[in-house]
Design a protein around this nucleic acid. Structure first.
Lengths: 199, 199
DNA sequence: AAATTAAAATGAGCGTGCTCATTTTTTTAT
DNA sequence: ATAAAAAAATGAGCACGCTCATTTTAATTT
């Protein structure tokens, strides 16, 4: 039983690695699920025993990278930065890990990390959303802000966050400075909003 | 020559009406382009002489409705409301017209009205974006705000706007009160931002 | 009004994501 | 060990969006 489970995990891993290789080399749209299957050494249909759709597979891959970005963040974290600086570091750490997949980040993330779970839900996307928001909550809490964001300001944050990702995904400025400016700006808007009791 | 052009427009119109009927009755995903062609009384391939993709067709349909919403807005507009109230009216006017197409608003709009034009651009989506932002500029100008939003605050606005659409598209609360609350909140965040010179 | 050119419509066919009945492999029971 | 049951892999085949060589229709020229 353990062997099987490990084998299963291993197949899933093989598919993810094959997808990663092909998506980055050939592009998302250009890579067929059949090609991924060949690269992973499995039959075409087997892929869909592990990922219900090509999009879900892509999202799982991105979720992996986002999680790595968050790990980078916690590793680099010091206790001497401001709330805004911490949020800035969180987002840029994620972006750095997403870099190789920039071309299909927008279409995939926007449909799978939508503000509210849909019928054709993608668990990987929803989990990723939850994990990111948890991190944000933790950061805010660490900075002693009792005003924990509730439903509506979380939605606001998420809009800003997705906006950043969308902008970044087609930002052609050198080193994406424009994105960095937007991140800075968005975070300012957000932190001002949550620390303003009049809203 | 005139006859042909009118005929062409008429065919485009027939396709749009067929798509409108089927999308609302059967759903976006469920409606095949072949079925739309039959309903419009044309061959399957002809549809693609008018709209390069199913998604573009859907976006053109939504763009039509958004424009109607904006017309409703200008009609209802009085000169006695505040900036926030005007923006609120603009957005809710659009939402009212989009209502029947709610189920596929998010996936279509998010990919075709992305913050920045892509390679596989959809003119209908970009035009719609421009028209909406023009309207917003006009409203702000009418309220005597010299602080015309430049690049970055326009991006901020657009993030908030898309966030609202995404939220609304899966808002199950009666009469979408939650969306109205979010619209109100988002507009407040935006107006405060553009009238704050410290940012 | 016949001939020539241009524009538009057509539908057979392609490649894709994905399904599902069948086969193969693994686990459990005897 | 053998048989029965459960789990996983398989690949032929489907339906879809979309393409494109060909045909049909309309506009222009002679």
């Amino acid at each position: 039983m353990r062997i099987t489970k490990e084998a299963k995990k291993k197949t899933e891993y093989k598919i993810l690695r094959a997808a990663e290789k092909l998506f980055t080399k050939e592009g998302y749209k250009e890579t067929t699920t059949r090609r991924i299957a060949v690269e992973a050494g499995i039959a075409a249909g087997t892929l869909f025993n592990y990922f219900p759709s090509k999009e879900t597979l892509a999202m799982s891959l991105l979720a992996e990278k986002l999680a790595l970005g968050r790990e980078d963040f916690t590793r680099r974290l010091t206790s001497e930065e401001s709330l805004s600086e911490d949020l800035f570091l969180l987002i840029t750490s994620e972006l750095r890990r997403l870099r190789p997949f920039r071309s299909f980040v927008a279409p995939v993330l926007e449909t799978t990390m939508s503000p509210f779970p849909k019928e054709n839900s993608c668990p990987a996307g929803q989990d990723s959303r939850a994990a990111h928001l948890d991190m944000v909550q933790k950061i805010i809490h660490n900075h002693g802000l009792s005003n924990i964001p509730e439903h509506i300001s979380t939605t606001l944050y998420w809009s800003l966050y997705l906006g950043i990702l969308a902008f970044w995904s087609s930002d052609t400025s050198r080193n994406q400075e424009e994105t960095l400016a937007l991140v800075d700006y968005s975070i300012n808007v957000f932190t001002r909003t949550i620390s303003d009791t009049s809203l």
